[in-house]
Amino acid sequence: MSETMVKAEEVHKRFGQLEVLKGISLEVAPGEVMCLLGPSGSGKSTLLRCVNHLEKIHRGRIWVDGELVGYREDGGKLYELPESEITQHRAEVGMVFQRFNLFPHMTAIQNVIEAPIRVKKRPKREAIASGRELLQRVGLADKVDEYPARLSGGQQQRVAIARALAMEPKLMLFDEVTSALDPELVKEVLDVMRDLARLGMTMIVVTHEIGFARDVADQVVFMDEGVVVEEGAPSQVLDNPHEERTKRFLGLVLEH
């Protein structure tokens, strides 16, 4: 394993004329949890999507576990990777979305085993066995054969986490995974994430749950308008922010 799990260096990303990331540099060590905070539109989702190459970056470099994301560098030149290598990279990085994005035409277990069977070519029986185990681990042993439409938001999000874990990723990306949930369902999802962190999973978590960040994060990064405004230990960024923008944002979030 490389010494840094994720390393971003001067990452720039544009959508048309709009520059969304303006030189982001980050490092996440293996087993570390990084919480990413910032106002709406600051580029948090975009940054996560760049890490597994769902979006292409325009400048800078991102490495995951020592490997350059999306490109091969040879003699000072960059070569785009073919699809087969990009998918292989993505298969090693789990991602969970704000709106769950479960496959609605598949049951919980079918959602979980789809990628292990299609991408990793695991035998179906084996995939089902470990898929059941994962669903049990997120507390859904009795919902294995249920379609997503018949599950609560919290249950759907836990299936989505199990689906990502089924690929045995070395890094997990969480994009505001509790923002679409009713308040009473937030805890069951955060608990699953706490467990994961305790078991040593490397995670980048975009969240507005300050309490969670304070408890679980090793590092907190505050972003605004495509730049990192402040970063450091949770006690420093959350409780003693230096920057005016950080203070203002935390004031707004903690009001709720």
């Binding site: 699809e83 991602m95 990628a115 989505a160 689906r163």
Partner: peptide, 24 residues
Amino acid sequence: GQTDAAQALGMARLQTMRRVVLPQ
């Protein structure tokens, strides 16, 4: 979001189309 989820799992574009997008 369906395509995002499938691709994030490492599914290729054709797989995504056949298994996730077309059935829906």
